[in-house]
Simulated scan of single mutants.
Amino acid sequence: MTAPSVVVLDYGSGNLRSAVRAVERAGASVELTADLDTAMAADGLLVPGVGAFAACMAGLRAIRGERIIARRLSGGRPVLGICVGMQILFEHGVEHGVDTEGCCEWPGTVERLQAPVVPHMGWNTVEAPEGSRMFAGIEDERFYFVHSYGVRTWELVTNDRTKAPLVTWADHGGDRFVAAVENGPLWATQFHPEKSGDAGAALLRNWVTSLKAA
Rank of each mutant, 00 (worst) to 15 (best):
A62M: 05
I63V: 15
R64W: 14
G65C: 02
R67A: 14
R71D: 15
R72L: 01
G75T: 05
R77F: 00
R77M: 09
V79G: 04
L80P: 02
L80Q: 13
L80M: 12
G81S: 08
V84E: 14
V84L: 12
Q87T: 06
Q87A: 05
I88D: 07
I88A: 04
L89D: 14
F90S: 05
E91A: 09
E91T: 13
H92R: 15
G93D: 06
G93K: 05
E95Y: 11
V98M: 06
V98I: 07
D99V: 12
D99N: 12
T100C: 02
G102P: 01
G102D: 04
C104T: 13
E105N: 15
V110W: 12
E111W: 07
L113F: 06
L113N: 01
L113R: 02
V117P: 01
V118G: 04
V118R: 00
G122M: 02
W123F: 08
W123P: 02
T125Q: 15
T125H: 15
V126N: 07
E127N: 13
E127C: 00
A128Y: 11
A128T: 01
E130A: 10
E130I: 07
E130F: 13
S132C: 05
M134W: 03
F135H: 07
A136V: 07
G137A: 04
E139G: 04
D140A: 12
E141T: 03
F145K: 01
F145G: 01
V151M: 11
R152L: 11
W154E: 08
L156P: 15
N159K: 15
N159R: 15
D160F: 11
R161P: 09
K163F: 01
P165V: 09
P165Y: 10
T168V: 11
G174I: 05
D175H: 07
D175E: 13
F177A: 00
F177P: 00
A179H: 09
A179C: 04
A180R: 10
